[in-house]
Design a protein around this nucleic acid. Structure first.
Length: 171
DNA sequence: AACTTTTACAACCGCAAGCAT
DNA sequence: GATGCTTGCGGTTGTAAAAGT
């Protein structure tokens, strides 16, 4: 399939959104509705790519977003849905009004995943961890790495899926 | 108080699906 | 059917804030 750059990168802002950019985006979507993200930035006077605008709107600016902490019910529902659907965050989000796929994905990776591991449950399969994996989960301090650089290259993804604990990050 | 490490989450990137031509 | 474009998704990264030393 053909693929083109989503935007003219040389002329777009990146990084955190400013209040002014938010206001422009909200005003434009209110006036014209969602959709046609490709042309939205220029129409709204934003130096962002359409992708970035869409993400910002969906994950942060939409008026129907709940935000705030996840309730116990939501927590349990996410675990249940994940056991059925896997990493289909958009499908899971569709069952949780006011929550976004990105928010759920982040919540899963930072909270639920660790909680399940703490209970000796594999967050991928939702089954009890094997002895080896449990040992690794319990004693991850024994593991030699948690350096993102090494995780991020090559087999790091697979490795991370097997390894428990927080995704090591450093400032 | 200063510095280091960890956590949390917003945002980016690349890929693939779906639609139009 | 082939090609090109846009949108949506999931994985990954950057960084501010919090916690620890």
């Amino acid at each position: 399939m053909g693929r083109s750059p989503c935007c003219e990168k040389a002329h777009t802002n990146k990084g955190a959104w400013t209040r002014e950019e938010d206001e422009r985006l909200v005003a434009h979507v209110r006036a014209h509705g969602e959709g046609c993200w490709r042309s939205l930035p220029s129409a709204a006077g934003l130096l962002r790519c359409g992708k970035s605008c869409r993400l910002r709107w969906i994950n942060y600016l939409r008026p129907d977003l709940k935000r705030g902490n996840f309730s116990r019910d939501e927590d349990e529902l996410i675990v249940k849905l994940h056991s059925l659907l896997g990493n289909k965050w958009s499908l899971i989000a569709a069952r949780l009004p006011g929550r976004t796929d990105n928010e759920i994905k982040n919540y899963w990776n930072t909270h639920i995943r660790r909680k399940l591991l703490g209970r000796g449950i594999d967050p991928v399969t939702h089954r009890p961890l094997t002895d080896a994996a449990t040992a690794a989960a319990a004693g991850r301090h024994l593991l030699p790495l948690q350096h993102p650089q090494s995780e991020r290259s090559g087999d790091g993804v697979q490795l991370r899926q097997q390894l428990p604990g927080p995704q090591g990050r450093h400032a």
